[in-house]
């Protein structure tokens, strides 16, 4: 169970240890059962998407993976280890980028926060932060404050901050929900590439069924009241994917049909 192997070579043997594993999870919040009997696992290096109606527990699911929340019953495992709390191996991109960035730090300063938390030597931080901003397409914007940036740029800063952690698991909670269509598509392609390059496992929550199919290797469809797994769809579309070609493929359209039918039935 050498974790380094699983990271760079998702061989059949390493896949025996899933990156994320939920085992019969139940969670009660404020006297209400929010998630019930939820079991699934995500393989290392996999890009998994989660869709489902509003309030079905998608955010809650991510928070269970981060360790910000603990299940009432059942166990969550991360990289083969029991989840006791947040770990530097796990990074999360929040939907509300406006609130998740420190308004008093510049873009570079926000990225550097993660480096500080990781104990990166002071002298290396500036160069590392600049390189990360470069990676998410923000070269030259390092000294802007969040209030001086557009929504897409702010979300890019948040992504850069998460990449700074060099996480083995990257969680994203409707990261592009508040962005316009063009920015959204650009960021979809960027995130697909960044995740692929880093070799991280991704768990991506979205409202947008097309986005889920476009990005995912698998799509988990949840059902509400209480939140549980309704359907799992394998996406066998070739990579790299592209906005026009992939979306026109018959397989894409077929999956889209399946998912839409499912959503209609469960609503």
């Amino acid at each position: 169970m050498n974790q380094m192997t699983s990271r760079f070579a998702p061989s059949a043997a390493a896949c025996a240890v899933p990156a994320i594993a939920f085992d019969k999870i139940r969670l009660d919040l404020g006297g209400k059962c929010v998630v019930d009997d939820l079991s699934f696992s995500v393989a290392p290096g996999e890009f998994a998407c989660v869709v489902g109606p509003s309030g079905c527990g998608k955010t809650t699911l991510l928070r269970l993976v981060t360790g910000l929340l603990s299940p009432t019953r059942g166990t969550v495992h991360r990289l083969g280890a029991f989840v006791g709390g947040p770990s530097p191996d796990v990074a999360i991109v929040f939907q509300d980028y406006g609130r998740a960035l420190l308004p008093w730090r510049t873009a570079a300063g926000n990225v550097a926060l993660a480096l500080e938390a990781m104990g990166t030597p002071r002298l290396e931080r500036a160069a590392r932060a600049a390189a990360l901003l470069d990676k998410v397409g923000l070269a030259g914007h390092g000294d802007k404050y969040p209030a001086q940036m557009s929504g897409g740029m702010q979300q890019r800063v948040q992504i850069a901050r998460c990449l700074a952690q060099e996480p083995r698991i990257l969680l994203m909670d409707e990261p592009f929900g508040a962005l316009d269509a063009l920015t959204r598509q650009a960021l979809q392609d960027e995130i697909a590439m960044l995740v692929r390059d880093s070799g991280a496992t991704a768990l991506f929550v979205t409202h947008d069924l097309d986005e889920a199919i476009y990005l995912g290797d698998r799509v988990f469809a949840l059902q509400a009241n209480p939140g549980r797994l309704a359907q799992v769809i394998d996406v066998a579309l070739p990579r790299p994917r592209d906005q026009l070609g992939t979306r026109e493929q018959p397989e894409f359209l077929r999956l889209r049909h399946v998912l839409f039918d499912h959503v209609q039935n469960t609503h």
């Binding site: 910000l68 947040p86 530097p88 796990v90 999360i92 609130r99 420190l102 008093w104 926060l113 500080e116």
Partner: peptide, 28 residues
């Protein structure tokens, strides 16, 4: 901002660093 508290938690920032890097600028 509660979201920033979560950011601090996921980055595992200690109480003193939290007071200096989150609390103080927020209160400034």
């Amino acid at each position: 901002e509660p979201r920033l508290r979560e950011v601090a938690k996921t980055l595992r920032i200690g109480p003193l660093a939290f007071a200096l890097k989150f609390g103080l600028p927020n209160a400034l």
